[in-house]
């Protein structure tokens, strides 16, 4: 872990709020790239707007955002580029509408991936979270729509969740700007390496498949020793994903 000397007040909320500078569309001289991923209609664009001060369109229906949008913010002297992605239910399929998000998470090489989930529908959202965690080991779970979860009498034990997933969990209500300072702080700590994630890897895979994946991923590691997500690539190769095959051939993973 990186050893950084922290000033005492770096963790206090006032400092957090002041350390933030919304940069709007100015995305030059960037230190870190942060992707906003998640199921449709979980508030990704709302989080994006809260962080960058932009007015990316939001709307209460799945599929509002269809092209990726970029913005930036500065926090404690580091500049972050934030990329708002269209919502996806999964990274497993090859359907076209999910292409933008899939490609960016896989090939855009974000330094941190913020996964925005709907707190009242956690189980269904975890489907995507677990897939993303196969791909990257620098992620933050943004437990959004906490106000609605509260209204529906849903309680979430964030520490257990964070332990099980192996990544930091931040509850927010992006629409009311609640929890946003915390989110920024966590993003910057993951980006700088102050927080090290140990992401959960999918366990309930039938033996037949696990064996095949094991075999394939060993081969992949031989070819690309530095790759962090050989298991995911193995899954995709077994699926016959053309995009991945092409990426292997052109060496996009190297």
């Amino acid at each position: 872990m990186e050893n950084k000397v922290n000033s005492a007040c770096e963790t206090c909320p006032q400092f957090n709020a002041k350390g933030l500078k919304k940069l709007g569309v100015h995305t030059d001289n960037i230190d870190y790239v942060v992707a906003l991923a998640g199921n449709p209609n979980t508030g990704k664009s709302t989080v994006f707007n809260a962080l960058t001060g932009l007015r990316q369109h939001t709307g209460n229906w799945p599929g509002k955002t269809v092209v990726r949008a970029e913005g930036a913010f500065e926090y404690n002297d580091s500049k972050f580029k934030l990329v708002d992605l269209p919502g996806t239910y999964s990274l497993l399929s090859t359907s076209q509408d999910e292409e933008v998000a899939r490609d960016f998470i896989l090939f855009g090489k974000p330094n941190v991936t913020v996964i925005v989930v709907d707190a009242s529908r956690l189980e269904r959202n975890l489907n995507l979270v677990l897939q993303i965690l196969e791909i990257t080991d620098k992620a933050v779970l943004c437990l959004n729509l906490m106000d609605e979860a509260k209204r529906n009498n849903i309680k979430i034990d964030e520490r257990t969740l964070s332990r099980d997933l192996g990544i930091p969990v931040v509850p927010t209500s992006a629409r009311f700007n609640e929890g946003i300072p915390d989110l920024i702080q966590t993003i910057s700590e993951v980006a700088s390496g102050k927080i090290i994630c140990k992401p959960h890897r999918i366990k309930n895979v039938p033996k037949k498949i696990e064996d095949a994946v094991e075999k394939l991923s060993t081969e992949i590691k031989k070819q690309f020793p530095t790759i962090p997500n050989s298991r995911w690539i193995a899954f995709r190769l077994l699926e016959g994903d053309n995009r991945i095959i092409k990426a292997l051939k052109t060496g996009e993973f190297a």
Partner: peptide
């Protein structure tokens, strides 16, 4: 079919 699986 995949979409149905994804949707739970």
């Amino acid at each position: 079919r995949r979409r149905l699986l994804d949707l739970g």
